[in-house]
């Protein structure tokens, strides 16, 4: 159908501000809904990539990033990673790791990717780090029970309250050079993540 200039002008004159205002409001609703829904709709999140590949409550040293194999996009090629999918449904989890350099860190994430806790050896003032991951208690936040006399020397660990029963823990060991590769791999392979006995 060919539209003459006159009918086009009539069509233009027939356009209503009502529809424009309605479109702007609807566009705003679409914008907000898209932004809010995307974290739930995204299929290729770090949790879907790593969560399924990791065994629960077990520390695994991730293979170094190469063009053939990367655990996630933009993975650092000069950082060694160890990861653990923690699952607190059967009780607290104990994490032990030697953070050899001040730049090494342990970071805890919820399945949504929130990094709710990060610690470095510099923060604690010691290289050997022990964390006790617990779910938020229903009652008031109480300190850990004092160890019995015979266990006085046992380190109860830093108590970390975790907002979700499941999540990912990542140890990052930035390399200071190729010479530190073996040292980093050794330290990470000795790190542990296990259900508290």
């Amino acid at each position: 159908m060919r539209l003459s200039r006159r009918s086009l002008a009539r069509l233009w004159g027939g356009l209503s501000w009502f529809w424009v205002v309605a479109a702007v409001i609807t566009g705003g609703v679409i914008h907000i809904a898209t932004v809010l829904a995307l974290p739930y709709l995204a299929t290729d999140t770090a949790w879907t990539r790593l969560g399924g590949a990791l065994a629960a409550n077990r520390m695994q040293v991730l293979p170094p990033a190469t063009p053939e194999l990367q655990a996630f996009p933009f993975m650092a090629p000069d950082v060694r990673y160890a990861a653990c999918r923690y699952d607190l449904s059967e009780g607290p989890v104990i994490v032990r790791a030697d953070l050899l350099h001040p730049t090494w860190s342990i970071a805890l994430y919820t399945p949504r990717g929130d990094n709710f806790y990060t610690v470095t050896s510099a923060d604690l003032g010691r290289r050997t780090v022990k964390l006790r991951l617990e779910q938020a208690a229903e009652g008031p936040d109480e300190p850990l029970p004092l160890p019995r006399k015979a266990r006085t020397l046992r380190d109860p660990g830093v108590r970390v309250t975790v907002p979700s029963a499941e999540g990912i823990l990542l140890i990052r060991a930035p390399l200071l050079g190729d010479a530190y590769l073996r040292e980093a791999d050794n330290a990470l392979s000795q790190a542990s993540c296990a259900k508290a006995s």
Binding site: V35, L36, L38, P39, A42, D44, T45, A46, R49, L50, F72, P73, F74, S105, A107, Y109, T110, R112, G113, D114, N115, F116, T118, P163, I168, L170, R172
Partner: peptide, 21 residues
């Protein structure tokens, strides 16, 4: 990576598949 991140940052990070500190 922050737990109190705005919805845009949250959506970007979910799409990126990364776990930033």
């Amino acid at each position: 990576g922050r737990p109190d991140a705005d919805p845009y940052t949250r959506a970007y990070m979910a799409r990126s598949g990364r776990l930033p500190i």
